[in-house]
Amino acid sequence: MPKKNFYDVLGVSRDASADEIKKSFRKLAQKHHPDAGGDEQKFKEISEAYETLSDPEKRKEYDQVLMFGGIPGADFGGDGGRGRAYTYTDGGFDFSDIFSGFGGGAASAQDDGGFGGFDFSSIFGGGNPGNRVQKGGDLTMSIDVTFEEALTGAQRKVTYRIPSTGEEQSLTVKIPAGAVNGGKLRYRKRGEFGRNGGERGDLVITTRVAEHPVFKRDGADVRMDLPISIYEAALGATVEIPTPEGKTVRLKVPKATQDGKVFRFKDLGAPNVKKKGAKGALYVTVKVEVPTRLSKEERGALEEAQAADHHDYRRDIEKLVKDAAKESKSK
């Protein structure tokens, strides 16, 4: 593969403006800085490219070499990449060594030497990053709760370990009434310890709600399917329905109820965890069950009912079938 030139490294065109070069370098420096988990060699490469292209005189000389087919590398423009050792101090990055050959250390907004006045403090917070105050990271864990506990609320005592110190800490977790599967509980300053006096991170706990054999949660709403027979669907019926709280209500199924019909019971769902005192609804969906086995008496009764049935259930479909047949004959 052909060797990349400095414009390729920064991802800009050869006629890019100084602002475009600076903007591209800033973005790449944030991404590849070793202290942020980036690639050290890549960061060195983009730093060398910016060092040359941000200086009008160096860029002019560089462009002349490119014009004649050359691709100067790290040694272009004086000391280039020589003498720039990457050192780490207490987990931070020492920029004084990186930029020592260009204006005496990392350039700032008040220093137009070296890197064209680029303010590295705007990216990395200024000074030695290893001495910066840093907030600790968040810790995560999950808690399993039953369907009923998620409705009424519950408490759990949990113990977790702080990665940096290995110490165990305990906490009583209050699961709110109406907790949902995948919901987040955030406990401030109970996470990883900060650095250099920084505050602790948070402990984020995810609730995992067990499934119920009948009820399904949909936020604060609760849904359930109600199987009924073809006879109940046709003739109507009154059915007792369980509620999520363990009570019962009566549902009057009207005659000629169709499969998939939904009935709504207001305020019989789960507590709304986002709105104190509010509750969702209970939605009951009718599922008409067709028997797979019939007794002799049932079969006889259904055959008599079918013979007496003069309803046209497929009127529109039959019309299309007849039209298609006529069209076929006319061809």
Rank of each mutant, 00 (worst) to 15 (best):
P2M: 00
K3I: 13
N5A: 02
S17C: 06
K23P: 00
F25M: 05
R26A: 15
A29H: 07
P34D: 05
D35N: 06
D35L: 10
D39E: 10
E40I: 13
F43E: 04
E48T: 06
A49C: 09
A49G: 06
P56R: 08
K58T: 00
L66M: 12
G73P: 10
D79S: 11
G80R: 08
G83V: 01
D90N: 14
D90R: 15
G91L: 06
G92F: 09
F95E: 10
G104I: 02
G104E: 07
G105M: 05
A106W: 13
D111Q: 13
D119P: 00
F120K: 04
S121D: 13
S122H: 01
G127K: 11
P129M: 06
P129S: 14
R132S: 14
V133H: 01
G137P: 01
D138K: 13
L139K: 04
T140I: 00
T140R: 13
S142W: 04
S142M: 02
I143C: 02
D144Q: 15
D144E: 14
V145Y: 04
V145Q: 05
T146P: 06
T146I: 09
A150Q: 05
L151W: 01
A154H: 10
A154W: 04
Q155S: 15
Q155Y: 08
T159S: 14
Y160D: 04
I162K: 06
S164Q: 14
T165M: 09
G166P: 11
G166S: 05
E167N: 12
E168K: 15
T172H: 01
I175C: 11
P176W: 02
V180W: 10
V180K: 13
G183S: 15
L185E: 08
L185N: 08
Y187M: 05
E192D: 12
G194M: 07
R195F: 06
R195G: 00
D202Q: 09
D202C: 06
V204Q: 12
I205D: 11
I205V: 15
T206Q: 12
T207Q: 06
V209H: 11
H212W: 05
H212V: 07
D221G: 05
D225F: 03
D225G: 03
L226A: 04
I228M: 03
I230A: 14
I230L: 07
A233M: 01
A234F: 02
L235Y: 04
A237Q: 03
I241W: 03
K247R: 13
K252Q: 11
T257K: 03
G260R: 07
F263C: 05
R264I: 09
K266T: 11
K266Y: 02
N272M: 07
V273G: 02
K276R: 13
A281E: 12
V284N: 07
K287L: 08
E289N: 11
P291Y: 02
L294Q: 04
S295R: 07
A301Y: 01
A305D: 09
Q306Y: 10
A307V: 02
A308L: 12
A308I: 01
D309I: 01
D312E: 14
Y313S: 05
E318H: 12
V321P: 00
V321S: 01
K322W: 08
E327P: 00
